[in-house]
Structures are given as C-alpha cells and as structure tokens.
Design a binder for these strands. Structure first.
Lengths: 145, 145
DNA sequence: CAATATAAAGACAAAGAAGTCCAAATTAGG
DNA sequence: CCTAATTTGGACTTCTTTGTCTTTATATTG
C-alpha cells in the first residue's frame, strides 16, 4: 500500500480521458489535468506497455483507453503503475501483511485492507470520472496556481 | 497516510524498548530490531525532540521511553516520525482527503481512514509489544538473513 | 585525571521518485 | 515530398529517503 504521485497522475489523466469520446494528445491531457507534460508522457508509455492505453503516433494521433472506461478498475490502474503487489502489503511495512498473521497489526489492518482493495476492484474509471463534479475540477484548477 | 520505512523502524525499536525494564543503548536496540545503527541513532534523536523518548549520555546511559508504554499510542509515534498531518490525507493524494468531499474517493476512503486512525489512537505501544509473539520475533530474525 | 561508553550532530554517499530536455521515429495533410 | 504534430526513448537534474562515517559532547568507572 505504498502509492506515489504517479498513481495520482495516472488516475487524473485516465479520468480526463474517460470523459472524452475521441483520443487526446499527451499535451491536452497534461494541461487539462495539470500534470507535467514530459512526466505524463512517460507514464502514458508505461500504461501502454501495461495494456491500459493505446496510442497513435503522428499528426492527429494521441492517447486512447485500451478498453471501455466501465471495464477499467482503479485496482488495475494502481497495479499497472506501482507494480502487481502494491496493494498487498501493510502501510507500516512491519511485514508483508497479506498472509502474515504474526504481524501485530495484521488482525486490524487486514480487514480494512480487504475492504479498500475490494472497493478499488469494484470501482471503474467510468464511475470515478462521473463522480468527479465540475466543482472539483474548478478546485483543482485553483490548487494549481 | 504516507508512511515510510522510518515509521517501521520507530515502531520496532520502541516495541523492543517497551519489553525491557531498563534503558537500552542504541546499539542494543539496533541489533535486536535489525535496524541500521547510525540510522536508528538519528531516529532516536528525532523521537527525543518529539518527546517520545529520553536519553542519557555517557557510560551506562541509553534510551528510555519518556512515558509508560501503556500511554503511548501508535498514532503518536507515527505523527512524531512522519509529521502531524501524515494520517490526514488520502493515500491516492487526489486531494487532501480529510475535509474534501469533492474528491471522488472521499466517500469511501474517509470512513476507512477514520477507522484506521481510531485504531492507531487506541492502540498503545504496550499492547503491540505484548501482541508480538516470540514466533514473530524469530520470523523477523530469519527475514534479516 | 584517564579511559571507556554512550548520545548528538554534521557531512557525505546511494538509491529512488519527480521532473526536464532533446533527439529520433512515426504519421497525416498539403 | 515536405512539414507539422505526435509518441518514444534516453540523458540529465533535483529532491527526498535511506544509509554510512567521523567528530564532538557527555557521563561513568576506576
């Protein structure tokens, strides 16, 4: 359960993409979601390798979702960015939590973790994109200043 | 909710200390809890400044808890190490979660966060030290190799 | 006082995350 | 074919975390 800024960027960019019909360029996504463009370009590259995005080079090209937004879970995105085991271990790192009942925090942490992961697996990009209100977008824009 | 290795080290070292009656040297703690000694020395120094530990220099000196282990919460320790707001924000960092209902993850994350923080506030170092079984200690020692 | 054991503090190195820049490859349109 | 718009890839910087090393300050014991 160690999430970096890259996860935030990935979710924000994919969210933005899910709200559009047509492909968007990295530049458009970066400015819409307020993400450093060159950094996002690398993230996009990673997400293509992980099968979350597809891209089209050249004029008129851009980035598209590899699957419908309703079928992409947050869990999938996080694992693509942070690695396949990112959601398994305890944030305290006292030990790899999933499967070590000897950890003193295990009895409390594990059920919570299970609920979080369950939620992430259940929640699709489409839902997040829809749930993000215009109000929140304005807030983000203000934060950016 | 951004926790680093330092938090793990702090909890392990304090746990070890809580199991003893008398002060222990940084060296003893480091080897018992398998933490790099010089790094732990700095952590101890921080925890002294934050009022969690007291130290005694010179021969026969060492590190002691500033308060009884039953009165030190995990929350306190985490905030001492990571900063006072470490437990407030969302691990996805989509926005500062505590108090931003516009975040699309807020409705799900915030109750979970509240439960985690509640647990951390309720759980004392003494409980964790007690709950840590000898089996776990052996496991940690094996892991160290 | 001398020797020893200890914490404290600072400089430094290593590794990873975040961010920037630039050149190359690819595609569309004129 | 040429140009513009794109992604791709690599080199590089900067910052934070983690880790090491050395010196200094402080206390105890004999």
């Amino acid at each position: 359960m160690r999430l970096t800024l890259s996860t935030k960027y990935a979710i924000l960019a994919l969210e933005e993409l899910a709200r559009r019909e047509s492909p968007a360029s990295v530049q458009e996504l970066a400015s819409a979601a307020d993400i450093p463009q060159a950094y996002l370009a690398k993230l996009v590259s990673l997400l293509v390798r992980m099968g979350v995005l597809t891209t089209q080079r050249g004029r008129g090209g851009g980035v598209s979702l590899a699957k419908p937004a309703g079928t992409v879970s947050l869990k999938e995105i996080i694992e693509a960015v942070e690695g396949p085991t990112a959601l398994q271990d305890c944030p305290f790192e006292l030990s790899p939590c999933a499967g070590d009942p000897c950890c003193p925090l295990y009895p409390v942490w594990d059920p919570l973790r299970a609920r979080i992961v369950g939620f992430l697996a259940q929640t699709s990009l489409a839902e997040v994109a829809q749930r993000t209100t215009p109000k929140r977008r304005e807030q983000n824009e203000r934060d950016a200043e």
